[in-house]
Simulated assay, not measured.
Amino acid sequence: MSPTPDQRLLAASVAGDSVGVRAALRDGARVTARDAELRTPLLLAALGSHVDAARALVAAGADVNAQDLREDSPWLVTGVTGSVAMMRVLLPAGPDLTLRNRFGGISVIPASERGHAEYVRAVLAETDTDVDHVNRLGWTALLEAVILGDGGRAHQEVVEVLLAAGATPDLADGDGVTPLTHAERRGFTVIAHLLRQAESAALPHHPGTPS
């Protein structure tokens, strides 16, 4: 039995076959089609960072906010993959920047956890993403970069970007532990230094005291 247009569209989206995506759409495939895990063609394309396929799907009206069984959406997974190109393809489709994944997080949080510094920089510069959003674990993007990062250059850069974008340096987790304390406990000396500087800069300045 030949695959249906919907099945062809899903398969082409997984493969990043933009020609196949367009052909399936011409043959009547629905951009709202779902696989067994309720993933749409656009989500499948986003997961694979298949930009051209995603561009065709967005042009056909695909929903950038449609979530699957795992509560992933095309927009949310850009934070997982760290694809700035995909992020920019999806922006015109009107992503809901407050939509949360299964952990209660928004895209900047998994991006920070994984050390996707360029994505973090781009999403904060080009959208109104809440840099201090707190997920169900009680963690912000800054906390995730410290707690789940490795302290290396990528995560140092993420911390720099988050702080430059206005992240609150001493916003503690659900147990009252600040990013600085986490960094010190893990021996992340560079990140700890960045956080100390940010905390110091955030302190109110009193007249008569040195700047």
Rank of each mutant, 00 (worst) to 15 (best):
S2L: 03
P5Q: 03
Q7G: 14
L10I: 13
D17R: 11
V19I: 10
G20P: 02
A24D: 03
L25P: 07
G28T: 05
R30K: 14
R30T: 15
V31R: 12
V31C: 09
T32S: 15
T32E: 15
T32Y: 10
A33M: 10
R34W: 10
R34S: 00
T40G: 10
P41W: 15
P41H: 14
P41Q: 11
A45E: 06
A46I: 03
A46S: 11
L47D: 00
L47F: 12
S49R: 05
A54T: 04
A54F: 00
R55Q: 04
R55D: 01
A56I: 01
A56D: 12
V58Y: 06
V58H: 15
A60R: 09
A62I: 09
D63W: 07
D63M: 05
Q67I: 05
R70L: 07
S73T: 01
L76K: 01
T78A: 14
T81Y: 09
G82A: 03
G82P: 14
S83W: 07
S83V: 13
M86L: 12
M86P: 14
M87G: 06
R88Q: 11
V89C: 10
L91T: 14
G94D: 11
D96A: 15
R100Q: 08
N101M: 10
G104E: 02
I106G: 02
S107A: 15
I109E: 08
P110D: 07
P110N: 04
E113C: 08
G115M: 07
G115I: 03
Y119V: 02
R121H: 12
A125P: 01
D130E: 08
V131W: 02
D132Q: 01
D132H: 06
R136Q: 08
R136I: 02
G138V: 05
G138E: 04
W139N: 09
A141G: 00
A145E: 05
V146D: 01
V146R: 04
D150A: 06
D150W: 06
A154H: 08
H155N: 08
Q156D: 03
V161H: 00
L162I: 07
A164W: 04
A165W: 10
G166H: 12
A167G: 04
A167K: 07
T168N: 12
A172C: 13
A172K: 12
A172M: 10
D173Q: 07
D175R: 15
T178F: 01
P179F: 02
L180P: 05
L180A: 07
T181N: 14
T189Q: 08
T189R: 05
V190P: 05
I191P: 01
A192W: 06
H193N: 09
H193L: 11
H193Y: 00
L194C: 13
L195P: 03
R196K: 14
Q197P: 02
A198R: 05
A198H: 11
E199I: 05
A201Q: 06
A202C: 03
H206G: 01
H206F: 15
P207W: 09
P210H: 12
S211H: 11
